[in-house]
Design a protein around this nucleic acid. Structure first.
Lengths: 332, 332
DNA sequence: GTGAAAGCGCTAACAC
DNA sequence: GTGTTAGCGCTTTCAC
C-alpha cells in the first residue's frame, strides 16, 4: 500500500515532522545533513508521495485557481487560458479550467463549483450579462475574482486597450480614404463590443465623418453575415468593419454573395485573434484586423490575481496592457 | 468565519454525523423528518459548505479526473475535452485539464502532477512518442489511464475508425476518376497518421492503383505546404490528399503558389475536424474532408474510463465508435 | 433514529 | 537539530 509520512519517518528513524520539514524545505539548512539524507533515501525507497488532500486540509490552502471562459473551443480564449495557466503553474498553483459555453447558468454553476473546490482565486471571462450574485457568492467568501478581457463595473479587470486600438483602426480606415463606412458591433452587454464601437466612433467623430450604418451582431459568423447582407442591400458603402473577426468572415461571405470584390469594391476589416490562427494566411481574401495580445493579457491577469494576495490594491486596479497593433493585409 | 459541520450540528441540536448523513443522503428515509428539517435550516442559516479536502481525505477518494491533450488551442482537442468533461461532470467528477503543448517533457510533468493530485483516472492524448514510463508511474499506483484518439500498443484506447474512414476516402477519390494521387502523411509515431495512410493505401491496393508519391509531414500547415510544393514541382499529379486538414490547407496554399486551380487542375482532400470550424464554410476553396466524431469519442472514453472502476475489463477493450463520414465539398 | 469516538495524513506550535 | 502533541473537517463503524 501507499506509504505515509509516518512510515517514512519510522524507516529513517525520525519523527514525522522532520520528514515534513525536509519535504517543505523548512529548516533545510540547520538540519544534520545525514538525517536529511536518510529521510530522502526512505522517501525514495518507499516511493512516498504526500496526500494533497491532507496537506490542503492541514494548511488551509488549496493553491487552486479557477479559470472560467465562455468558450474553450474559441482559439482566443484557449490562448488566454494558456497564458493564465503558465503563470499559475510557475507559482505552484493548480488551474481548474472551466467552459461556460456562453451559458450564464453554466457559468453560475461553475462559479459555485469553484467555490466548493475552495479555489483561492478565479479568473473569469464573463459570458456577457453578468452573474453578479454568483460572483458575489465567491467574493463574500474571500475568493478573489478577477475579470479578464471583458469588463463589468465594480470588478477588477485586466483587459486590452480595445478603445484605443479600435480608434487606431478607425484612423487607419479613414487614412485609406474610405468615407462611406458601416460598422457591425457586438452584444451591448459585452464591454469589448462597446469599447471597440466607441473607439471607432472616436476616430470618425474627430474626423467629422459619420457612419453610414451601425448594426449589432452577436460576435458569431452568422450574425456578421446577416448584418452585412442587410447593410449591403440597403446602403452604398465602401467599407464594412466588424467588431471581431468571426463576424468579419461573415461580411466577406456576404460580399461574395452580393458579387462584391474585396478589396476592389469594398474594404473589410475585423478585430482580434486572426493572426493567431495557424492557417490564417490561407484565408482568401485575407483580413485587415487588430492583434490583441491575449496571451500577455492572461499572464498579466494571473500575475495580478496572485499578487493580490499580498497587496489587495493590486486587485482593485484596472490594467490595460499595450502591444495591440494593426496587422495590415490585403483588404485595406 | 466559515462554519464547520460541528457548528451546524450544534445549532440543530444533533451530532455531526447526523448532519453528514443528511449531506450525503445516507439514511435520509429512516430519519425523523423534523430532525432533517432542522439540520437543513442550520445549513442554510450558517451558509455551510463542506470542505472538499476534508471529505477527500476521509473518503480516500478525490473524484478527480485528468485530461491531458497535446494542444488545447487546437479545435479538435478542445471539442474532445468538452466531450470528456461533460460526461465527467455528469457523474460528479472534477476535470483537471492539461495541455502538453506537443512537448513530451511537459506531458510527463503533467502526468506526475495528476498523480500528485490523486486523480483517479487520466484520459490522455499522447504527444506522439510515448512516455511509457511516465504512464506506468500512474498505472503502478492504480490510476486508470485511457488513451484517446491516438493508440499506443499496450494501453486501452478509444479512437475513431481512422483506417476505415480513410479507406472510404480513398475509394471516394478513386471513384471520382483520380489516378495520379499523392499522399501526405503525418508523424510515423502517431497512430492516427499510420492508420489513415494504411486505410488510404488499402483502397488503392484493392483497386490496383499506386500512389504517385508519399510524403511525411508533421500535421502542421507549414509541413503540408512544404510537402505539397515538393510534390507539385516534381510530379504530375491530379490529386493530393493529406492526413489532416491543417496540412491540406498547406496543400491548397502550395497549389495556389504553383498556379494550379482547385479543383480544376488538381483535387485536394484532408481529414478530420474542419466541419467543426465555425467559419469553415468560408474557406476558399472548400475542402473535401472526413468528419471525425470527436465529441462522441471523448464522451465514450470518459464513460469507459469511469465504468472501468466497476469492471476492469472495460478498460482493456479497444473501442471504435462509428459515425465517421465523408463531407463532400467543392474540391472533389 | 441518533450519538460517541476514532482516525484519514499531514503540519506547526512548542518543547527540549 | 529533532520530537511531542494537537488538530485541520469530515465520515463511519459501532453502540444503544
Amino acid at each position: 500500500m501507499r506509504a505515509t509520512i509516518r512510515e517514512v519517518a519510522e524507516r529513517a528513524g525520525v519523527a514525522p515532522c522532520t520528514v515534513s520539514r525536509v519535504l517543505n524545505g523548512h529548516d533545510a539548512d540547520h538540519m544534520r545533513p545525514e538525517t536529511k539524507e536518510r529521510i530522502l533515501a526512505s522517501i525514495r525507497e518507499l516511493d512516498y508521495r504526500p496526500v494533497k488532500a491532507a496537506q490542503r486540509l492541514r494548511r488551509q490552502r488549496t493553491h487552486a485557481l479557477g479559470i472560467l471562459v465562455p468558450d474553450i473551443t474559441n482559439l482566443y480564449f484557449a490562448l488566454l487560458i494558456r497564458g493564465i495557466e503558465s503563470v499559475a503553474s510557475e507559482r505552484g498553483f493548480t488551474s481548474l479550467i472551466c467552459d461556460s459555453s456562453h451559458d450564464p447558468r453554466r457559468e453560475a454553476r461553475y462559479l459555485d463549483m469553484l467555490l466548493a473546490e475552495d479555489a483561492e482565486g478565479v479568473l473569469l471571462v464573463p459570458t456577457g450579462r453578468v452573474n453578479v450574485s454568483a460572483v458575489e457568492r465567491l467574493t463574500a467568501r474571500d475568493v478573489r475574482v478577477m475579470l479578464v478581457d471583458r469588463r463589468i463595473e465594480g470588478f477588477p479587470v485586466v483587459e486590452a486597450d480595445n478603445r484605443g486600438a479600435s480608434r487606431a483602426l478607425g484612423e487607419h480606415i479613414l487614412g485609406l480614404g474610405y468615407r462611406r463606412v458601416a460598422y457591425i458591433s457586438g452584444p451591448a452587454e459585452v464591454s469589448t463590443a462597446e469599447d471597440r464601437l466607441g473607439g471607432f466612433r472616436d476616430a470618425f467623430d474627430a474626423a467629422g465623418v459619420r457612419f453610414v450604418a451601425v448594426e449589432r451582431g452577436a460576435f458569431t459568423f452568422e450574425s456578421g453575415f446577416d448584418a452585412a447582407r442587410k447593410i449591403l442591400r440597403k446602403e452604398k458603402v465602401d467599407a464594412v468593419v466588424a467588431a471581431n473577426d468571426l463576424m468579419a468572415f461573415g461580411v466577406l461571405r456576404a460580399a461574395e454573395e452580393e458579387g462584391l470584390a474585396v478589396p476592389g469594391d469594398i474594404g473589410v476589416a475585423g478585430f482580434d485573434h486572426v493572426p493567431h490562427v495557424p492557417y490564417a494566411t490561407f484565408l482568401r481574401p485575407e483580413l485587415t484586423t487588430v492583434d490583441v495580445p491575449v496571451d500577455e493579457m492572461g499572464r498579466e491577469a494571473a500575475r495580478r490575481l496572485l499578487a493580490g494576495a499580498d497587496d489587495p490594491l493590486k486587485l482593485a486596479t484596472r490594467l490595460v496592457p499595450g502591444g495591440t497593433c494593426i496587422a495590415r493585409r490585403r483588404t485595406e
